[in-house]
């Protein structure tokens, strides 16, 4: 029984399904995370209390972390093995450059975007959660960490570039999610694009608004 299950999951379609489901789990997390971050616009108390509230619920935090970690590992496993399969499937490349007819920039950069996002996530955790990289870390003061972090131009710039990369990855990922799970119908295919653009844009714009807010002193303008 288990052999059969592994065989199905290990097939090309099975691994795509794993990639789609785990990707959407992370998208759900990103929507929540982004919304939470927007509290920084309401001032230090709002965001710091929210952080304290989360810290006071270890079960919630750790379930979330484990689900995300497992999802990311499975997602990266599926992406890496499928990528290797694809490379092996065409050992000799074409000499003429391929005329692009349909594929999008977002689709062609999935295999660049993925690893860039993974490196970004590691950096991001070291920066805000662990406090090992970036400027002086104020334990428990999320607001100060955000303000001092994003006042350094190259850190703000790096975050903004990574958020754009995530936006492209999510756009093609969410659109693919429907196709991979078999949702394709002439009546609501246009809706699929709209949903993919809307979610990718919301997440990217929401996250980017924070470093931009700090740069333009909308956030932490009173801090010298």
């Amino acid at each position: 029984m288990m052999n059969r299950l592994f065989e199905i999951i290990n097939s090309s379609i099975g691994r795509k399904v794993i990639m789609a489901i785990t990707g959407i789990v992370v998208v759900g997390f990103l929507l929540g995370h982004m919304t939470g971050n927007l509290l920084v616009f309401k001032g230090p108390d709002a965001i710091n209390h929210y952080a304290e509230f989360l810290q006071s619920k270890p079960l919630l935090i750790w379930t979330n972390r484990i689900v995300l970690l497992v999802s990311l590992i499975l997602h990266i496993w599926a992406a890496t093995t499928l990528t290797l399969d694809a490379w092996n499937a065409r050992p000799v490349p074409y000499a003429s450059s391929q005329r692009i007819l349909e594929t999008t920039y977002a689709a062609r950069t999935m295999r660049w975007g993925g690893p860039i996002i993974a490196l970004y996530v590691i950096y991001h955790l070291l920066h805000f959660t662990v406090g090992r990289v970036g400027p002086q870390h104020f334990e428990g003061d999320v607001y100060m960490n955000i303000v001092t972090g994003f006042r350094i131009p190259y850190i703000a710039g790096f975050y903004i570039i990574c958020m754009l990369a995530i936006g492209f990855h999510l756009y093609h990922g969410i659109w693919s999610f429907f196709q991979t799970l078999g949702a394709n119908h002439p009546l609501y295919n246009p809706l699929r694009r709209i949903i993919a653009v809307a979610i990718a844009l919301t997440i990217t714009a929401g996250f980017i608004s924070v470093p931009l807010g700090v740069i333009f002193r909308v956030i932490g303008g009173d801090i010298p």
Binding site: I13, R15, W87, E102, A107
Partner: peptide
């Protein structure tokens, strides 16, 4: 290889 929904 596997499909990545390029549409080509």
């Amino acid at each position: 290889g596997g499909c990545t929904n390029h549409g080509e």
